[in-house]
């Protein structure tokens, strides 16, 4: 059901773990549905004065696909300018992995969203203007998270535990 590339990234994921001195972190997912990604970015300026993502690392709670996509997005995003990185989609990540099973696309392809959210957090923190596309995607992600929490509210009560990572 998984491609060899997915399995490879799952077995030996790249750039895993928390980053020291990160510039910003993007947190997406919901423990209630089972996949949570925290993605850290380090941003520096290059010689041309552009913002470059020089390092990415992540911490992920999730299935095989969630871990493989975390690994892949960290490879894809590293070295990209902020503008280039904003353009990376979940579909791009899945394609680089040779595809994901259809049922995994919805729940596990959160990796590019996490990158998006990290960039958003970085720009907010640096008091920069937010490109329209980034703002739109941030709003969309926030709306999806809210819907997920609503949809799984019954589980949360039943399970008698606060879904951590949703705060």
């Amino acid at each position: 059901m998984y491609t060899e590339k997915v399995i490879d990234h799952f077995r030996e994921p790249h750039n895993r773990g928390k980053m020291e001195n990160y510039s910003a972190v993007g947190k997406v997912g919901n423990i209630v549905c089972g996949d949570v990604m925290w993605l850290y970015i380090k941003v520096d300026k290059n010689d041309a004065g552009q913002d470059i993502i020089t390092d990415i690392s992540w911490e992920t709670f999730g299935c095989t696909a969630a871990i493989a996509t975390s690994s892949m997005v960290s490879d894809i995003g590293k070295g990209k300018t902020i503008e280039e990185a904003i353009a990376v989609t979940n579909q791009d990540v899945a394609s680089e992995l040779g595809g994901l099973p259809p049922i995994k696309m919805h729940c596990s392809a959160l990796a590019a969203d996490a990158l998006n959210e990290a960039i958003y957090a970085y720009l907010i923190q640096e008091k920069r203007s937010i490109p329209e596309a980034l703002q739109k995607r941030h709003d969309h992600i926030a709306k999806e998270m809210a819907q997920l929490e609503e949809r799984y509210a019954a589980f949360t009560e039943k399970g008698n535990s606060k879904p951590r990572g949703c705060e």
């Binding site: 209630v32 049922i103 919805h106 951590r164």
Partner: peptide, 26 residues
Amino acid sequence: GSACSSPNLEPSHVLVALGVPLSMAH
């Protein structure tokens, strides 16, 4: 019996029925 083994996101209906905390049910 957890979420990703089935075509939906929910944790196992059995573990949920037992009241297993969600942080554990997955």
